[in-house]
Design a protein around this nucleic acid. Structure first.
Lengths: 107, 107
DNA sequence: CAATCAATTTAATAATTGTTTAATAATCAA
DNA sequence: TTGATTATTAAACAATTATTAAATTGATTG
């Protein structure tokens, strides 16, 4: 089970529109990821601002980076988000799924 | 599909340890929910602080309240979190689940 | 090497957030 | 109605966060 502080960190990292945009781009991009500059361009943000956000997402474990020549490619780490969702839904309705009137995605 | 700003709001609401604690208690409590005071006691926080956090969670749509005598019962709204997860994982790996080496909870 | 390109870092500032204390509402019981 | 209980609101302050501009690092090309 993921730790509470790590979950808070991950949630905080995603709770900002530019970073949420970054994360979604990377989820769609898959394992290959995207270059920092392409992401910045797509989201209309300066390189400095983006670096700041990349760092926040990295520290939260939500994304990873790899260098390729002059470019830095970022990609999503799905397991951390998975852990986050598990943490949030743990012990749902006291463990009685029948009590939840919610699509089975969660409970 | 949930709107970006609403997702950011929900993520921000959960990105704080006391509120995350509240939400998890309410997820476990199920539809009946819990009284504000019981939650405060369980999380060792003052009533005023809790009210502030309840408001944040309410505005994000993550919890709901109902009055019962002197007590206010809060309960989790599962659909908003469900929408949040859907939003985060939309178009995962460009729509090619085989490309994701992740447990099927997400992709 | 010098020039260029991609990205990060630093410092400064503005804006937002969390907590505390004190005051206010609303409900109930004697 | 009075007093006690449950919860919210408001004001003040400290701490954190996001953005910008300028400087810096590291890799590539001529």
């Amino acid at each position: 089970m993921m730790e509470s502080t790590q979950v808070v960190k991950a949630l905080a990292a995603l709770a900002q529109s530019t970073r949420l945009g970054v994360y979604r781009l990377l989820v769609a991009a898959g394992p290959e990821g995207m270059a920092a500059g392409s992401i910045a361009e797509k989201l209309n943000a300066s390189a400095a601002t983006m670096s700041f956000h990349f760092k926040t997402l990295s520290h939260a474990g939500l994304i990873e980076s790899r260098q390729d020549g002059r470019f830095v490619y970022y990609s999503a780490n799905f397991e951390v988000m998975n852990g986050m969702v598990v943490y949030l839904t743990e012990n749902c309705c006291g463990g009685d799924p029948a009590a939840c009137k919610v699509p089975d995605t969660i409970c």
